[in-house]
Amino acid sequence: MDNAVINPFLTSGYLSAEYFCDREEETKKLTRLLTNGNNVALISSRRMGKTGLIRHCFAQPKIVRSYNTFIIDIYATKNLGDFVYEMGRQIVNALKPRGKKAIESFVDAVKSLRAGISFDVQGLPSWNVELGDVQTPAITLEEIFTYIESADKPCLIAIDEFQSISSYPEKNIEATLRTYIQNCHNANFVFAGSERTMMGEIFVSAARPFYQSVSIMNLDVIPEVKYSEFIKYHFEKNGRKIDDDSIHEAYARFGGVTWYIQKIMNYAYSITDKGCAFYVARLEETVEDIVEENSEIYKNMLFLLTPPQKMLLIAIGKEGRVSQITGRQFLKKYSLSASSVQKALTALLEKQIVTNSQGVYEVYDKFMTIWLSWG
């Protein structure tokens, strides 16, 4: 692949170590824990790069040689049936590059879904299972763990947005998963989550099944000096330059959160021709262009909210950060009532449009915060 045609600042997915910034110590630690029989809870706020770190860890030669690796994203799941469906689907997708024989071993174990997995003339699998086809989730889950236990190599399994299981309607789901995982000797797990409070309750509370069952890793921002080196390296490697002030301002404005830095630098790189430089004077225009690109999405989000939800969201967006959300000063400034705020806030938190971190409320999307401040 010709590196010259790749924008080096990826905003989704994982390509290779070349396009992965720092996390050297975190990669070593996660690799060491997993390859020495530990399960890990990986916790950070969203868009900090948890999934990227997991993919980078799973791409380490030591792991590629000796392990099967699977990443299961359960962010959109609502119950055990959804969980089992995603687990089966993602395992099949991960096994595809290994050929028909590898997938057949999975199909043989998962008898309850066998009819939904077929092979074409070239031996490539087709996942024809629908959510409704998972008639007996508990049985299918047991079959999947039977496959994991009998797999030809030890398995490393990352479950992304693991806190989602807390909202499943099924009783004792944590205890059920804990039992399967505890009795599975051919796999270790990464439980990645972005809701610190919920993840803390699952793994730190003595009353919960997963108590003291994992090593906990908290993922913080990449240090500015490391990010600066990474950004300047890729600009210069491709015949461009960027000044230190641009990097510092972008890093400071978005608190060093990985995805926002990547998005801004992706855009800055794309508008900087070879032989030219990007200066801090263009940064504000760059941010505004990115926000404007998303304006229709934000308009549609507001349209789908009730008037009280919309009023509260706009108020939080204009403030940036709100700690006294039912305080008299905040309510008076935005013509809100305490009763309407409480109800609207619950809805905005459930929709994950607004976040709550230690009693401080913010709009989840920092670009949306800027857009709301324009109104």
Rank of each mutant, 00 (worst) to 15 (best):
F235R: 09
E350Q: 10
G37K: 06
I222S: 11
Y251A: 05
S118H: 05
F235D: 13
S105I: 13
G317F: 06
I74L: 07
I103V: 15
G52S: 13
D245Q: 10
V121G: 11
Y85E: 02
K96H: 00
G99N: 09
Y260D: 01
I63N: 07
R208W: 04
Q262R: 05
F278R: 07
N294F: 02
I325T: 02
E296T: 11
H185F: 08
K96M: 11
S105K: 14
W127N: 01
S205F: 03
S118M: 00
G81K: 12
K100R: 05
M198Y: 03
L95K: 13
E174H: 03
K96E: 15
M217S: 09
A268I: 03
K318H: 06
D22Q: 11
T179L: 12
G317H: 08
T369F: 00
Y168V: 01
R178V: 05
M368V: 02
S164F: 04
D2Q: 14
T179N: 12
G255K: 03
Y67M: 08
A109R: 10
D152C: 05
V129Y: 10
K366L: 10
L348K: 10
E86A: 08
V107H: 06
S337K: 14
S166K: 02
Y19I: 05
P8C: 12
N7I: 04
N79D: 15
T258V: 01
K351Q: 06
Y233Q: 11
F83I: 01
A41T: 02
L113A: 11
M265R: 09
Y251G: 04
D245R: 08
F189N: 06
A158K: 03
I148L: 04
E229V: 05
I271T: 13
W374G: 11
P61R: 02
R89P: 02
R178L: 02
T69V: 15
Y267R: 15
A338V: 08
Y85M: 00
N36I: 00
K111F: 01
S323R: 15
I157E: 14
